[in-house]
């Protein structure tokens, strides 16, 4: 079985790798590129812990092959913070105690960044629907929703705060 060459831009940095076609995107990120912020939760595409943006579209990286992402722009949790400043979503999760054990948090934040790019002023119901593919087994959803509401308000007031790689890629 031959390997295939893939070129991906992750959080603004271009990476090249020769991979087996069966390599999952999440394993490329974690095991080949060392970006372990993206978590593997259920490994069955239900829990959303592995959510990343692929060309600005949120995806469960355990349900995509690395070769499918060849040529794509990818944003992971590591790409949210810019120049030492937390993304408003990261800050809001901190402020609102939106993380308990923290395992679902990377996926929650990346998915929320996609949600807010589509809908900058979501209702609580739209937020809950927007993160319905991301499971928090601490069941800390109340504070997660509050955190997304806080970040949404901040981003509406100062949209340039999302101008990190996530903001640029989210379209």
């Amino acid at each position: 079985m031959t390997t295939q060459h893939v070129s991906v831009t992750v959080n603004g940095t271009r990476h090249e790798a020769d991979v087996e076609p069966r390599l999952l995107l999440v394993h490329l990120l974690r095991d080949v590129l060392g970006l372990t912020g993206t978590h593997i939760g259920c490994d069955t595409s239900h829990c959303g812990a592995c959510t990343v943006l692929v060309d600005g579209t949120s995806a469960k990286s355990c349900a995509l092959l690395a070769v499918q992402a060849n040529g794509a722009q990818i944003t992971t949790i590591e790409g949210m913070e810019q120049a030492g400043k937390l993304h408003p979503l990261q800050q809001a999760f901190w402020d609102q105690h939106g993380l308990q054990c923290g395992f679902c948090t990377p996926g929650m934040i990346v998915e929320s960044s996609w949600l807010l790019a589509q809908n900058p002023d979501p209702t609580e119901q739209e937020i809950r629907e927007g993160i319905s593919g991301n499971l928090c087994r601490c069941t800390g959803y109340v504070n997660i929703v509050k955190a997304i509401q806080q970040a949404a308000a901040e981003l509406r007031a100062a949209p340039e705060a999302s101008a990190g790689s996530a903001g640029v890629a989210a379209r």
């Binding site: 595409s45 959303g48 959510t51 579209t57 949120s58 995806a59 469960k60 349900a63 995509l64 998915e111 996609w114 949600l115 629907e129 927007g130 319905s132 593919g133 991301n134």
Partner: peptide
């Protein structure tokens, strides 16, 4: 169908 990520792909 599914959830937002599923509908995206």
């Amino acid at each position: 169908i599914g959830d937002p990520q599923v509908r995206n792909w």
